[in-house]
Computed example of a mutant assay.
Amino acid sequence: MIMALLGYMHIKMESVNKLANEMEFVEGALRESELGIENYYLAVQDTELKMDNAGKEIKALQDEVGKLTSAKEVKDKEVTACKDSVAGLNNDVTAVEKEKSDTDGNFAGEKTKWSEEINSLKQQLQDHSPVCAHAKISSQDLEKDPTLKDLCPQIQNTAVTTTAVLPQGKV
């Protein structure tokens, strides 16, 4: 019986040793799990910190975008006002250009008419007037009224060749 007890004790000792080994293995696994959980916890804290920082950056960027958006709206209004102003000025320029074109056309027509009139008058001045041919003007008359030369260019020739036959002041 002792032998049986010794055998039984030996089996139980092996069982206890086996259980002790298993416990050491489980405790090691538990320590590893605790380290893994602690690492995960630190990773979660680090991720939460990064998320908080990213949230702050997003908020700051949203505030900046809001400021830029309001500034953009002001600039858009200014651009619209400038475009409207440019359109108005273009309309004014178009009207002025049309008026200038009309004026230039009228001026060209008037210039042509006046040029023809001037040429006609010059021709009339150059033509010998029958009145000038019969006028007897002395050099004294020409001195008193030099415009007589303009009216009758041939008077100068006549005045030089003929002397005053008429009394002074009578033509």
Rank of each mutant, 00 (worst) to 15 (best):
Q156F: 07
P130I: 03
A60V: 10
V44P: 03
S33N: 04
V171S: 12
D84S: 00
E97Y: 01
D102T: 07
K122T: 04
E14I: 13
L151D: 07
V93D: 06
I137N: 01
S15G: 15
I58P: 05
Y40M: 11
V65S: 11
Q156G: 00
I11L: 02
V165I: 11
G36Q: 01
V74P: 04
Q45W: 10
M13W: 14
K59S: 10
V93P: 00
K50H: 03
A43L: 10
S129K: 04
V86T: 13
T94L: 07
A164N: 04
C132P: 01
I37R: 11
K75W: 06
T162Y: 00
N90K: 11
K12N: 08
N21Q: 08
K122C: 04
Y40L: 14
V74S: 12
P130H: 03
A81E: 02
G169E: 02
L142M: 05
Q154P: 03
Q156C: 02
V79N: 06
E117W: 04
S138E: 00
T69Y: 08
L142E: 01
V131N: 07
E73H: 09
A81Y: 00
E14S: 10
S15W: 15
S139N: 12
E78P: 04
G7W: 09
V65N: 10
L49G: 09
V26F: 12
E22G: 09
M9D: 15
G109M: 06
K77G: 10
A108E: 13
Q123D: 15
I155C: 03
V26L: 13
H128L: 14
K75Q: 13
T47H: 13
T163N: 06
E32D: 12
A43H: 02
K56T: 02
L5F: 00
N119T: 02
I58E: 09
A43C: 01
A159F: 01
D150N: 15
K170W: 11
A133R: 11
P153R: 01
T80A: 10
M13C: 14
A135I: 07
Q156K: 04
K18N: 15
N91W: 02
Y41L: 14
N90H: 05
L35M: 10
E14N: 11
V131K: 06
K67A: 14
V171W: 06
K18W: 13
T163P: 02
I37E: 09
V86H: 07
